[in-house]
Design a protein around this nucleic acid. Structure first.
Lengths: 149, 149
DNA sequence: GAAGATTGAGCGGTCAATCTTG
DNA sequence: CAAGATTGACCGCTCAATCTTC
């Protein structure tokens, strides 16, 4: 059972990542990591401090600076230092980033549907959710740089 | 729901990986990838061709040669070219590899229990398995270098 | 001194090109 | 030419050290 779960996890991450890369087209660099980051910024129109962003995304905090560097070069996000506390860097999505996200979202949602939900009954989904939420809530604070929410 | 699943996947991989690293102690390089590889070789005492090994492990085929290089340096596995077909390289676990696997297995199983099964009821496990098996069987052939089994 | 973020060095993964054997 | 595996070059991730601002 564990083996099945972990194989699904690796395979889903691998395949969904590839789908985003291929759909990124000219724009090189597209990955689950970019998608995840944009999706979070999309929910915070005023932008997020690097720190807070780091604690929400799937991947490790490590390397976030460079990911944002590349996405900034690609024009998808911007940086801003608030006057209130000049240690902080707020990251925000650009107009271009929102457009790119919308395109990627179509691809990504189709992939999730096709590779995951397509194989689950409604009652499977309902059965999965509560235990997985417990697992998530248990795991979150164990990861470096995360806080229980 | 999808978000919960994918967060669990990333967090579990991250945490279980760290646990193996820390328990590897002196032996640097320990990771889920090493564990996964040794576990597969353990089930094939006569060894496996690189190719076959590649199609069974969690991670990508890519870089397998170098992973085996490092594990060979660490004394955990060995290579052998069968006379029958000298294109092939068979990888096998050494005695030392089996010992290391046994130690790692204790740590890893404890982690899986603590971070995953601890939060599931027996009926959750039974409910999860069939749909996840469908997902796995659907995904497997989509990954590069894999064949449906 | 602590919090927030960046930098540099090193390691590991990835893809395409190559080598060897059938 | 095909199958099996390795190599080299590049890129991304990771950790610890550093810089800036509070």
């Amino acid at each position: 059972m564990w083996r099945v779960f972990i194989e699904c996890a690796f395979a889903l991450i691998d395949i969904l990542d590839r789908e985003l890369q291929e759909e990124g087209g000219a724009e090189a660099g597209w990955s689950l990591r970019w998608y995840d980051l944009l999706a979070h910024l999309d929910m915070a129109p005023e932008g997020l401090p690097m720190n807070e962003l780091a604690s929400q995304i799937l991947a490790n905090k490590s390397g976030l600076t460079r990911v944002v560097d590349r996405m900034e070069e690609a024009g998808l996000v911007g940086r801003e230092r608030p006057r209130a506390d000049r240690r902080v860097v707020r990251v925000f999505v650009t107009r271009e980033g929102l457009d790119a996200l919308a395109a990627a979202r179509a691809v990504h949602h189709r992939g999730i549907q096709e590779h995951f939900f397509r194989h689950l009954q409604r009652r499977d989904v309902e059965a999965l959710r509560p235990p997985l939420e417990k697992v998530r809530d248990h795991l979150q604070p164990l990861r470096p740089g995360r806080v229980s929410r």
